[in-house]
Amino acid sequence: MSTKALFITGASSGIGAATARLAVAQGWQVGLFARSEDKLEALAAEFGDKAMALPGDVTDLESQKAAIAAFVDKTGGLDAAFANAGMGLSGAGTEAGDSEEWERMIGVNVMGVLWTVMATMPHLKKRSGHMLLTGSAAGRRHISGSVYGASKWFVHGYGGNLSEEMKAFGGRCTVIAPGMVNTAFFDEPKPDKLQPEDVARAALFALDADPRCATNEIFLMPTQ
């Protein structure tokens, strides 16, 4: 069984929690990072000594650095990180958009991803580590006026650039790009769409690939 260490943002629910659950089942140690301390503590309690709750703000570089330092102090190193935290918008399109909400979203979906990569990279270099980014089907096609989609286009473009950068130390980067997933991201349940577990399996598939294989993107869509 693996004893590798994985840091996950947006870990308190949805895709992040499902990925943590599957990773722990496969022997990984997980660092759970999110704002919701209560949810993180409950999840960490479920996993026992295989997990560490790391409450913090993804839009704060120093918060992420401190969390990662605490996790690495426990595990001895970092093998992978999953920049999964993200948010959507209540208003669609450009004219109907809320400028303050746009700023919050860019803080999470763009800067939050950059901060996760910046904070984890020194540790990943030491172990030829793996970076996972949560992209989206919305980052692979054009949607009328979608500012959210544009933030995911950034993730896809940056992920490709990061793959090239990480080659220098034998590292890899994978963008996990799902279509609609049944999570709290949506106000109404979506039982016929992808489940968080589907995305978690894709993440672990990428992490488990032979070191000779760089899985640059996994694109998942619901059959319905």
Results as ranks from 00 to 15, higher is better:
residue 215 T to M: 15
residue 125 K to S: 12
residue 141 R to L: 12
residue 198 D to N: 08
residue 138 A to S: 09
residue 215 T to P: 10
residue 119 A to Y: 07
residue 163 S to D: 13
residue 142 H to L: 15
residue 133 L to H: 06
residue 125 K to D: 12
residue 151 S to I: 02
residue 186 F to V: 12
residue 184 A to Y: 12
residue 207 L to K: 01
residue 151 S to A: 08
residue 165 E to G: 06
residue 153 W to Q: 04
residue 144 S to Q: 15
residue 134 T to P: 03
residue 192 D to E: 14
residue 214 A to E: 12
residue 181 V to C: 11
residue 136 S to H: 05
residue 138 A to L: 04
residue 165 E to T: 11
residue 169 F to P: 00
residue 190 K to H: 14
residue 118 M to S: 13
residue 183 T to I: 08
residue 152 K to C: 06
residue 153 W to S: 03
residue 203 A to P: 00
residue 121 M to F: 14
residue 179 G to S: 09
residue 124 L to I: 02
residue 149 G to A: 09
residue 181 V to N: 07
residue 129 G to F: 00
residue 186 F to L: 14
residue 160 G to R: 15
residue 204 L to W: 09
residue 194 L to D: 01
residue 184 A to E: 14
residue 183 T to F: 07
residue 130 H to N: 04
residue 190 K to E: 10
residue 181 V to F: 13
residue 189 P to F: 06
residue 209 A to K: 12
residue 144 S to H: 15
residue 199 V to D: 04
residue 138 A to I: 03
residue 167 K to T: 13
residue 217 E to L: 04
residue 147 V to Q: 03
residue 121 M to K: 14
residue 136 S to W: 05
residue 140 R to F: 11
residue 178 P to M: 08
residue 198 D to M: 05
residue 173 C to G: 05
residue 191 P to C: 08
residue 177 A to H: 06
residue 176 I to D: 02
residue 155 V to Y: 07
residue 202 A to R: 00
residue 123 H to T: 05
residue 176 I to N: 02
residue 208 D to L: 10
residue 166 M to C: 05
residue 215 T to F: 14
residue 147 V to L: 08
residue 119 A to K: 06
residue 199 V to A: 07
residue 183 T to K: 07
residue 166 M to N: 01
residue 211 P to R: 06
residue 198 D to K: 04
residue 136 S to F: 04
residue 213 C to L: 15
residue 201 R to F: 13
residue 136 S to Q: 05
residue 187 D to K: 15
residue 169 F to C: 06
residue 149 G to P: 01
residue 176 I to H: 04
residue 154 F to T: 00
residue 148 Y to D: 00
residue 131 M to E: 00
residue 118 M to P: 02
residue 156 H to G: 09
residue 166 M to K: 03
residue 206 A to H: 00
residue 129 G to Y: 02
residue 202 A to D: 01
residue 167 K to D: 14
residue 150 A to L: 11
residue 156 H to P: 02
residue 159 G to V: 01
residue 138 A to P: 00
residue 217 E to K: 03
residue 149 G to L: 01
residue 190 K to C: 09
residue 202 A to M: 03
residue 186 F to P: 05
residue 186 F to N: 14
